[in-house]
Amino acid sequence: MTAQELLPSLEKSLGTKIQHKTEFRGETTYTISPVDLREIAQFCRDELSFDYLIDITSIDNFGEEPRFEIVYELYSMAIGIYLRLKLSVSEDVGSVDTVSDTWPTANWHEREIYDMMGIKFNGHPDLRRILMWDGYPFFPLRKEFPLEGLPSEMPDVAFTKVTPMEGGPFVTKPSTATARDREPRARPPEL
């Protein structure tokens, strides 16, 4: 079975709930609404054999509304095809339903998104930070968070300081030019 044979059944059952469809190099992306997420996730797993949740990521479109996007990367072990689900979350809502009961692996992915981006997951069994410590006051992957960090202090647990950037960030310039032109240097951001 291929994606062309499988996915029409999803579109048939949930047609109205799919806001947008994109095809790119044989991979399909559906844009959906956050309220339909759990129903569509359950359908994808049970009816369409997407038994493997590869990853959940989040995107910060700072300055736009809705601000955040969450991307679910699905794979079917039985058939070998990919499916991507995208949904938007505005900063005011700031939360989306969990899918950790559908795919248990979502538990830690959602904790990571909560830790780095500050999006909450309704119904998550254990929504704690996963990389930074409990009590760290910032969400470091948000666009307004500076690369060099912000100072914080939790006595006996951890602290952070502002990193000296020394003219950086030091970035390479990918091209076919000589190593001297490509090597990491402090480059002003291209606006």
């Binding site: 990389l131 930074m132 910032f138 470091p140 968070f145 500076p146 690369l147 060099e148 960090g149 912000l150 952070t160 300081k161 990193t163 000296p164 950037m165 020394e166 950086g168 960030p169 030091f170």
Partner: peptide, 8 residues
């Protein structure tokens, strides 16, 4: 690692 997470 000139970053928010690493002690310098």
């Amino acid at each position: 690692y000139r970053s928010y997470a690493v002690l310098q």
